[in-house]
Design a protein around this nucleic acid. Structure first.
Lengths: 212, 212
DNA sequence: GTCTATAATGAGATAGAC
DNA sequence: GTCTATCTCATTATAGAC
């Protein structure tokens, strides 16, 4: 009988793969897909270049893997938090957005470096049409869930408006993580930006948009 | 006596240079700095690769030139429109943001292809710390002018908050131009997004943020 | 799984003829 | 200014030893 199943990977192999994904995440986040090289990644992960190929299969596949890994984790948390929120009290736009944003922010606070890199990575994915299908796969299911809740809160608003508002909100969230240097420059003071401000901005903006 | 001044460039030379800048703008916008190649650009501009080097001096310099060319034009229009607006009536946050956004949107409507490419180009500049000084040079003077007007409207709000709000607003503006495909996907309907919605979203958001 | 060596490609830049 | 040919370098990917 043929042995088709693969052997379970060793603990050491898993550890190596994790180092490679972590390195890839940081390099891709910093330099973008095209600016990153497998050598950069190998250097950061302290493995030979060949190993990056072995575990990543190809540069493109490796990129997708790094995005999927954290996107899956974040989606699960967001969905779970949404369920808890709904069971605890009546939703408001403010609490809904807070739930959506806070899930991410909490992860950044727990494990700053990695999740902050992921934030910049998502910005690259969103900016380049090349990753359209990856974005649809990783982000849309959860986004649609939250969009549905918004449409329940604003039954008279069009779906398109709600989707537009959500795009703006996500853009602001990405800016929150990726543009601290711009904020500092323009504001002249050191950064103390705060997630409550972001929620305030977005929920007020979306409320105005959906009541229009 | 030494002849240090250059000869005035011929009409043909200027025309060639314009074609190269237009090509570079589109390729850089589509693929980002690292994803673009001078060969792509030469192909689109229908010139030999050597000419791209000649007029662009280097890939990096060429990139900066494409950004500066339109940024200067847009800045002048924005400043002029702001002056007119102030002389005509009392500013409101809504009219101020409308002025800032509309200057860009009008250009897109007049000459869609080029200015839309520029919009995506700006997104690349904003996303990558590599272009920090370019961004400061091209965007900050005008941004600070508008920021100053905001602080006059909200004298009790902190500079940092106002700057944060402006970052969110610009992020939404860029999303407006760069994410139509995401909006369509999530909204399920064809795009009819409208600049008034953007102004509504941002002015309501910023008002809430600055009154907080 | 791990690692080395090497192949094959395509990049930015340059020199020099026209 | 224009264009061709070429140089040099870094990249991804692969083949095969351990």
């Amino acid at each position: 009988m043929e042995q088709t199943r693969k052997r379970a990977p060793s603990a050491r192999s898993l550890e190596t793969k994790k180092r490679i994904l972590d390195g890839a995440e940081k390099i891709f986040a910093d330099k973008g897909y095209d600016g990153a090289t497998l050598r950069n990644i190998a250097g950061l992960a302290k493995v030979p270049v060949g190993l990056v190929h072995h575990h990543g299969h190809s540069k493109e596949d490796l990129f997708c893997q790094t995005v999927r890994r954290r996107a899956d984790h974040l989606s699960k948390i967001r969905i779970q938090n949404l369920e808890e929120l709904k069971s605890r009290s009546n939703l408001t736009l403010h609490s809904l957005l807070d739930c959506f944003f806070r899930a991410f922010v909490n992860l950044v606070e727990q494990d700053g470096e990695h999740w902050q890199s992921y934030g910049r990575l998502v910005a690259h994915v969103s900016a380049n049409p090349r990753w359209r299908s990856l974005a649809e796969e990783c982000f849309d299911p959860t986004a649609k869930l939250f969009l549905h809740e918004i449409s329940l809160l604003y039954p008279n608003a069009s779906q398109l408006r709600a989707a537009t508002g959500q795009i703006y909100a996500v853009a602001a969230l990405l800016a929150f993580f990726n543009s601290t240097w711009r904020i500092e420059t323009l504001g002249g003071v050191n950064n103390n930006a705060n997630i409550d401000e972001l929620v305030t901005f977005c929920s007020a903006g979306m409320d105005a948009l959906l009541n229009k």
